[in-house]
Nucleic acid binder design. Structure first.
Length: 803
DNA sequence: AGCACGCCGACT
DNA sequence: GTCGGCGTGCTC
């Protein structure tokens, strides 16, 4: 086996295949599938993944693997297979799939630098030589910044300058400096006696080691003896002490003590739900369970006990949680139960921290991973269970390539490992519930809350009537009265507003002009924080115009309501209330999410005001009121799931109230109280909602009755975009069976982003075995135009959002 | 994706 | 004649 098949890190259609490399003799039996290597590719060096080994190839001449990056494969056999499955399933490049399964730290960085060719210094153009005066290497990137790039290029052509291609790891292993004595305590004491009288600090350090033998972290030592680095250095120089850097894990949860908890006693309902899961774990059978339990019904305890059973069996568990509810509170529950056996993975960690958590899994130092979507790729080898909490959450679908859904990956992996999958939710995705009803999934139901607490009382307030009654504020009489009441009682309130920023848009009252983003077809949002207008899509930022750019009038006004504005309003009407605002703006800094929640939990605030991110996972006993300021914001989005999303959000947020001893109340403000998703979420009646929504889906031919695939096309030129989409729609339509429907072309809901026009067409189908092949041919056909970046085509099978 | 190679128009 | 623009094709 002296030839390796390698997938190179060049995400392009033409390079999306294996390339063969010969393995240098010294590395035969060292190189294994799943390892990262550096290989020459054309004139440069690139990173690649070894996918297989073989003895023969059709090629006459092979180039050699230049370097091996891993001691152990980073992808095991199962994950390599999963990579192929992902590639096929999401129609991405193989390299993209492989990289998606690994932490970002393992992705290569490339650098191209120039150096004067040895012995040719005199031949180099003097202007170029001048640039090299104070350095040996010049980065090609820097050369391009300057206006004499051509000069350098010529020198390269002449062979006077050498081009070196670097492949660097993003990988940084964190090290900490340790100090340890090289002598025994007796020898140290003896030596201390010989020290000069002036070397007081050195004497103290030696005393320290006599009392505390063994290695110690340098920083701790310096603090303990109040010495400086120089003292240690001096002793090290005399070979009394040794300094050494040791690799450590960054522990995002260091300095935190988790009290060990034991399994709670389950209610009868919980036990009944856990039993079939345990059976499946015991028998290694690949079952998919849908754990359908109302908010507060104790799903987490079932997860914990299922994981416990898996650990006892010597196997491993993956626990997926939506990104926004991966709160310290959630993590705590798992750390408390399983202690050091838990790794945590979420976007709040730095690249290095994520890498360290990943390594704990890779080195089999942990048994459980709790994480967001990408944790589904945790490199465990004996999976015993995969759990997806809040399985309906759209964040389980990755919105960039590879566009995978963690639920599908979970089922695929569990199939390979012969282990069960548990999908949990109080408001399952329609697709999942339908599958449970068809007995593809096993339905487990929890209909009662724990602690015997009742589901909260929900009141729906018609804001149109409030307006008619002369109340123009954003709080209805009812909600305001209840807010005041809680304030008096010292109980807490959660207020949900599904919009960030201050106002949703800025308009001129004289001519009606709405200030739009110059690059995107979307209105700019006012941000009070720096008093500016911001585009949420391309990041464009500008000052608020003093006068209307269209008509010159100064009647510029803010419309719509954002969390910032509500906060200001609260200060006005309830000045005594202490408010914590949580949205993307206040939680962008690392750990701020946690800090705000802690403050709320500890009772330093009366009202928690926030966007969607507060709807999940909060479990605070003192919350007795939940207010939804405007339930309809999501309802009118151009998306066939908008009713489902609205129902889920309202039901979830309602579930935050009255989870413990105190009873909870919910006030939902809306302009469309008659809408079934609002009405039924008020009754917390998922089953009725399911029936109602399924009926609509059947009539309108949407999932779960039909599959959908979305093709997005973008181009700088509007006509070209429309024309190409038209052609694509025709082509797809012709290639599919008559039962399939192709809708469009239509302009995307946001018809322009970053100066590119966007069109889409939607395919609805039941069974089209040739669909993927057809789409692949389509991509191939436009390959040239997409390679030149004029045209972008993205295909999303089972899209979660229609933008 | 890069990068080389090659073909064409514009300039010393 | 040569420089540099971009279209074309290749990378084990």
């Amino acid at each position: 086996m002296n030839i390796a098949s390698v997938i190179v890190d060049v995400p392009a259609k033409q390079t999306d295949r294996e390339f063969d490399y010969s393995i240098p003799d010294k590395w035969i039996n060292v190189v294994k599938p799943g390892m990262r290597v550096i290989v020459p590719f054309g004139p440069r060096m690139v990173q690649g993944f070894v996918t297989g080994l073989k003895n023969e190839t059709e090629l006459k001449k092979l180039r050699e693997i230049k370097e091996i990056l891993d001691l152990e494969p980073v992808l095991n056999e199962e994950l390599l297979r999963l990579g192929n499955w992902l590639t096929d399933e999401t129609m991405c490049f193989r390299i993209t799939a492989l990289q998606a399964m690994l932490p970002a730290a393992l992705k290569a960085k490339y650098e191209k630098v120039l150096r004067i060719h040895e012995g040719r210094k005199e031949l180099v153009d003097e202007r170029v030589r001048a640039a090299f005066r104070d350095r040996k290497f010049i980065s090609w990137k820097d050369v391009l910044q300057e206006d004499n790039a051509a000069l350098f290029q010529k020198q390269v052509q002449k062979g006077n300058l050498e081009v070196i291609y670097y492949v660097k790891d993003k990988l940084n292993k964190k090290t900490v400096r340790f100090v340890e004595p090289l002598l025994t305590s007796e020898e140290l004491a003896q030596y201390a006696g010989t020290l000069a009288a002036s070397a007081k600090k050195q004497y103290e350090v030696l005393q320290f080691f006599i009392e505390n033998p063994g290695k110690i972290q340098l920083r701790t030592l310096l603090e303990a003896v109040k010495a400086s680095n120089g003292t240690i250095k001096a002793l090290a120089k005399k070979n009394i002490l040794a300094e050494r850097d040791e690799e450590i894990y960054r522990d995002p949860y260091e300095n935190r003590v988790f009290d060990k908890t034991s399994p709670f006693k389950l209610t009868e309902e919980q036990s009944a739900a856990l039993r079939p899961i345990q059976k499946s774990i015991k028998e290694n059978s690949h079952d998919v369970f849908l754990l359908y339990g109302v908010t507060g019904s104790g799903k987490t305890e079932i997860y914990l006990q299922a994981i416990d059973a898996v650990i006892k069996k010597g196997e491993e568990a993956i626990m997926l949680v939506p990104e926004i509810s991966l709160t310290p509170q959630t993590v705590k529950r798992f750390k408390e139960r399983f202690g050091e056996q838990v790794a945590v993975m979420h976007s709040g960690l730095s690249i290095g921290e994520k890498y360290d958590e990943w390594r704990k899994i890779h080195r089999k130092e942990v048994k459980v991973v709790v994480g967001a979507r990408s944790a589904i790729f945790a490199p465990f080898e004996n999976l015993g269970v995969i759990i997806i909490d809040e399985e309906h959450e759209s964040s389980y679908k990755q919105e960039e390539t590879p566009r995978y859904h963690a639920r599908d990956v979970a089922i695929q992996r569990a199939n390979q490992h012969n282990c069960p999958v548990i999908l949990g939710s109080a408001t399952p995705a329609l697709e999942s519930f339908a599958r449970a009803k068809k007995e593809i999934y096993q339905l487990l139901t929890l209909s009662k809350r724990m602690n015997n607490s009742q589901l909260p009382q929900v009141e729906i307030v018609d804001m149109r009537e409030e307006l008619r009654a002369g109340n123009r504020s954003m709080f209805s009489e009812n909600l305001f009265a209840k807010l005041k009441d809680r304030l008096q009682k010292g109980e807490q309130t959660v207020l949900l507003l599904n919009k960030r920023g201050h106002s949703s848009f800025v308009m001129c009252r004289s001519c009606g002009l709405v200030i739009n983003c110059p690059n995107c077809d979307i209105s700019l949002t006012y941000h009070r924080f720096n008093d500016s207008l911001k585009c949420h899509y391309c990041g464009h930022e500008e000052d608020i115009p003093k006068t209307c750019p269209e008509c010159g009038s100064d009647h510029i006004r803010f419309f719509g309501t954002g969390t910032q504005k509500v906060e200001e309003e609260l200060v006005k009407i309830l000045p005594e209330a202490r408010v914590i605002r949580m949205d993307v703006d206040t939680t962008s800094r690392k750990g701020s999410h946690e800090r705000l929640l802690n403050r709320f939990q500890e009772g330093h605030a009366d009202i928690l005001l926030g966007t969607q991110m507060i709807a999940k996972g909060l479990d605070f006993p003192n919350i007795t009121l939940v207010g939804v300021l405007s339930a309809d914001t999501m309802l009118h989005l151009p998306d066939f799931r908008s009713s489902e999303k609205t129902f889920q959000l309202l039901t979830q947020v309602s579930g935050r109230a009255g989870r413990h001893k105190l009873a909870g109340e919910v006030v939902i403000q809306t302009y469309t109280p008659e809408h079934y998703s609002i009405e039924l979420s008020g009754m917390q009646d998922f089953d009725a909602f399911y029936e109602r929504e399924m009926h609509i889906r059947r009539q309108s031919l949407y999932p779960p009755y039909y599959y959908v695939a979305l093709i997005n096309i973008s181009h700088e030129d509007l006509m070209k975009t429309a024309a190409t989409t038209e052609k694509i729609a025709k082509y797809v339509s012709a290639g599919l069976s008559p039962e399939a429907m192709v809708l469009g072309p239509v302009a995307s809901p946001i018809s322009r982003i970053k100066n590119r026009y966007r069109y889409q067409c939607l395919i609805k189908y039941k069974r089209e075995p040739q669909l993927k092949q057809l789409l692949r041919t389509l991509l191939e056909h436009y390959q040239q135009e997409t390679a030149q970046n004029h045209l972008q085509i993205s295909i999303d099978l089972n899209p979660q959002i229609m933008m």
